[in-house]
Design a protein around this nucleic acid. Structure first.
Lengths: 159, 159
DNA sequence: CAAAATCACGCAAGATTCTTGCGTATTACC
DNA sequence: GGTAATACGCAAGAATCTTGCGTGATTTTG
């Protein structure tokens, strides 16, 4: 799996288009990027096999699904030895409220992106689960008010 | 667009499957959720039209694209009047380094999810753009070390 | 309680798309 | 200048999408 593959302008267009609409048909995609369907499909396959396209995901509407609370938690641990970090990382995978999690450097050690059906559920998670987890030192939470920007990974960088 | 639509078990399965692989063919999806292709497609269309499925997106591999720095910025403003919040929100949309942004409540006012090709680019952004933006008071950054969890919105809640 | 209405399913068929093989043109490299 | 490698586009068969229609189950209504 070659990293930093050499992508040409058409590859970047493909990435941008599929980021905007990951279910676009290959013929539509090929029209937009200006080549015919077969080579376009071959390029997409190659991008997938190279791991540049990691996958495709439907984007869901949280409030419409009854998930009214989106929040972030900044978690600081007492001990940051590798083993401790791994243990906490593994814990995050077991919490369904946590949807994404990042190990970070700075004032905190982890950033958790959380979704819950209501404030009570989120508070219960923070108090009963998170802060009572061994080795957790500090938890700072930020409730989201609204999403201000939501784009994919690329919309700009093109060689 | 009905919110909190009444979804049955099959709808939830569809959402989970499309979150795992948004490009799955409809016949494959219909097999997985246990109904035939036509009603399955009708359900997907309905979920899309109801706004429950907001769209589809290809997930890209940041390091493979030469984007080696992923970081979060917690931004506090001096003034949080509605107009000021809108102005800053609009700014975030103009910064290509910022990929997602949330307005939050708590110690900060905005959380920015940033991607840059290298540390220098990110630092330039923070120093030359972000902290020098009018009304910006505090900026705390957290560089990500690695992603520990990356799932969609739902994997659990089902009625 | 029964009749009607509504809803969602599955089958089938035409339209579209996917997918592969193949020939050709462009580019890179001796 | 010749050769190899690469990527394109065309064409055809396979797969999928998409729509209309009939049937059965559940709900609503009289």
């Amino acid at each position: 799996m070659p990293l930093k593959a050499d992508l040409d302008a058409i590859d970047w267009k493909i990435l941008r288009e599929l980021q905007g609409d990951g279910r676009m048909t290959n013929v539509e995609l090929s029209n937009r990027v200006g080549i015919s369907a077969p080579p376009c499909l071959r390029r997409v396959k190659r991008l997938e096999e190279a791991g540049i396209i990691r996958g495709y995901r439907a984007l869901l509407n949280a409030p419409a699904l009854g998930l009214d609370v989106v929040a972030f938690c900044l978690v600081g641990l007492h001990h940051q030895a590798d083993a401790e970090l791994r243990i906490f990382a593994e814990r995050t995978r077991g919490w369904p409220i946590v949807r994404d999690a990042w190990m970070v450097s700075g004032e905190s050690d982890f950033l958790l992106h959380c979704v819950a059906s209501d404030l009570g559920a989120f508070q219960s998670f923070v108090i009963e689960e998170l802060t009572s987890t061994p080795n957790v030192d500090t938890v700072r939470t930020a409730l989201t008010i609204r999403r201000v920007k939501d784009e994919g990974l690329v919309s700009f960088a093109q060689p």
